[in-house]
Design a protein around this nucleic acid. Structure first.
Lengths: 309, 309
DNA sequence: GCAAAAAATGAAATTTTGTTCAAGTTTTGA
DNA sequence: TCAAAACTTGAACAAAATTTCATTTTTTGC
């Protein structure tokens, strides 16, 4: 591969001196395609970075309406520039990451769930040195199949960002019976993490929807037919792997009992109970979550906001 | 021109979604050249920004040698990636700007000169809210011809960066006679700024060289022949419009008396007396300045550093 | 309301950049 | 030490981006 020095020099000549690749090639005695490849490598190495400055200021009118309608303390509606789910998810994640930077302090206990929504937050976490802060996983993140949930990497990144200790929940979020769940929860380290989750003053979690694209489904957490049964029971979404209906009530008590992690009603006691969601397909899930009154703070995109009012 | 909205959308499609300009044109019903123009406008509007991450870590061996040789407290030698005077000047300016961010506090009185070297610092000033800090111009910055010195804009940017008050010296740095200089200095606001300059605990200034490209010369500060006379008297550089020889002594006492601004010996008393210079053509100027003992901190580029040891 | 000036537009030409592929070079492992 | 595999290279080609220029549209001043 190319050295950093090479990449820096070529990138600066290209982007700061505005030379063409041909001119750079002649000056530095590379061939023209090589210059093209070096620039490409500089991008991949993170030496070159294109930043687009655009406001993520919330859409205030929508915010106020949602705040009133669902009785929330803080609503952040992120503007949608382009109808593209990845960009939207990233923008919402970025806004949530900035908020966490603001509210976390050295006394905080931060509880986090996992999933694609939370993964959208991770790249934008801004380092803040809070060695006494604690970060705890709110629901089990062990995979049931080879399909990784990514929860370990997620917690890792959070704890690096804040230079703080992490407390993992290395168990599946849903097990086969409530007996197994109870047994697992007697393990002292699991018990400790669960207790820490209950004591956390900040909780951040994604609102999941009930679809065959969901990580929970793809992760092999459901037996043949069990997921469809959930759909039949009118489940519209999940928070921390706990499924609720459009009025925010748990749809399946038996399933709920064999789910390992924070109980939804606990979320109501948090100083910051921060729900994150993006994409219009989550409209019903978000409605359910908000009707349940689990969150006091929410980050959603503009399109989704319009769907839920 | 194009709206911000347009520029943001097109830029994001191009750089974040990696669509080609043709694809964007088709989606948004522009013509292909228009997309190209919008991207160009987004650059000019500062919406798109290409950032190249490269270390500006000092070249430690050179630093130590210069520190010893010239008895300095802090030496920053900025690596040279590409032999290009603009890039080098900017890198040195960036390093100095970062340093100012670190050392300035709410009690600081910051004295600054003006000129191309200082202009290289300005774009990199990082905002820091220090409303009680004071920023004062160290030497007169009024133009003698239509050629602007840019000192007003420079002070403006400094004061915005630190949210602090600025004290201008809206007089020429060199006048026709010492009598005129004395008269000007009796003006109360001028007197106040000069006094504040004397009391400043941080001084930042460029080291100028004696050449017909110098801003001072181009600015019309010298009568026909006067500049060549200065060269004949072995002037090698200036700080705050005061000319010195290679051993750091003032070369023309009469000229010095009709120069308005901080006296060089005052610089020796500062907590931070920060000299900035870049470009090998300034080797003799820097040697003179350092021999004079006016600075305790210096920012120079790697090539210049090699020339002065 | 109108003409002159200024700005925006897109087709076509030109320039620049990215990719393919075959040949050359280096690395790896027995 | 050697051969196979992996990587690197640049010529030739293909794709993409920019610029030119004539035309259309919009703005401005009277």
């Amino acid at each position: 591969m190319y050295t950093n020095q090479e990449m820096i020099i070529v990138a600066r000549m290209y982007y700061e001196m505005n030379l063409t690749q041909k001119e750079i090639a002649e000056k530095l005695r590379y061939s023209r395609p090589t210059v093209s490849r070096i620039i490409d490598a500089a991008f991949k190495a993170g030496i070159v970075d294109v930043k687009i400055n655009y406001p993520l200021d919330s859409v205030i009118e929508l915010e106020d309406e949602i705040k009133r309608k669902y009785n929330l303390e803080n609503v952040f509606v992120i503007p949608v520039y382009i109808h593209n789910s990845h960009l939207i998810q990233n923008d919402v994640g970025k806004a949530a990451a900035n908020y966490l930077y603001e509210i976390c302090d050295n006394k905080s206990i931060l509880g986090v769930s996992w999933g694609t929504t939370l993964n959208g937050v991770v790249p934008y976490l801004k380092p803040k040195v809070l060695p006494n802060m604690k970060i705890v996983q709110l629901n089990g993140g062990a995979a049931k199949s080879t399909f990784s949930t990514g929860s370990v990497a997620l917690l890792e990144k959070f704890s690096k960002t804040f230079s703080s200790d992490q407390y993992l929940l290395p168990v599946p979020s849903i097990v086969d019976s409530s007996l197994i769940a109870d047994a697992i929860m007697t393990d002292s380290s699991i018990e400790y993490a669960l207790d820490l989750g209950r004591r956390s003053n900040i909780a951040v979690y994604g609102i999941g929807n009930v679809s065959h694209n969901s990580v929970l489904y793809k992760g092999g957490y459901f037996k043949e037919g069990a997921y469809d049964e959930l759909i039949a029971k009118k489940a519209v979404g999940d928070i921390c792997s706990r499924y609720f209906s459009v009025d925010g009530q748990i749809v399946d008590e038996e399933l709920n009992r064999r789910t390992i992690g924070l109980k939804l009603e606990e979320l109501r006691k948090k100083d910051f109970s921060i729900a994150i969601a993006s994409g219009i397909e989550k409209a019903e899930s978000v409605k359910g979550a908000l009707k349940g009154g689990y969150a006091n703070t929410i980050f959603i995109d503009e399109e989704l906001a319009k769907k839920i009012i």
